[in-house]
């Protein structure tokens, strides 16, 4: 019962975040919404693991936490610099 309520609440939150990701308006809104969605997915996996008693699923939640973070940073870098290979802190010096 308790887990069911928690799962429903997480799904409501995920749908709210998904609507924000679809509406935009800026690309940063979308990334922020996806970041929140990722965190809630981790919690969803954790609650599911406790619900079914399959504690192995917690490893997946752990890996998801790392991938979520790295994914957000990678997408941000892609948005900011237009590529993934530029290193360092030069921001569009030539084009401005």
């Amino acid at each position: 019962m308790m887990y069911a309520v928690a799962i429903v609440a997480i799904i409501i939150t995920i749908s709210l975040a998904l609507v924000r990701a679809l509406l935009g308006p800026t690309v940063y809104d979308r990334i922020a919404a996806m970041n929140m969605l990722g965190t809630k997915t981790i919690l969803l996996i954790a609650v599911f693991a406790a619900l079914t008693g399959r504690h192995d699923l917690l490893d997946i939640a752990l890996v998801y936490a790392l991938i979520n973070f790295i994914g957000v940073i990678a997408v941000l870098k892609l948005v900011e610099q237009g590529n993934l290979y530029t290193a360092g802190e030069k921001h569009n010096e030539g084009s401005e």
Binding site: V5, K40, L43
Partner: peptide
């Protein structure tokens, strides 16, 4: 768990009520 759920939903609502990024 209930407080956490509530907080998550309120965060989701805030995502829609606030004016800018």
């Amino acid at each position: 768990l209930m407080l956490g759920s509530l907080l998550g939903i309120i965060g989701g609502i805030g995502l829609h009520r606030f004016p800018d990024f």
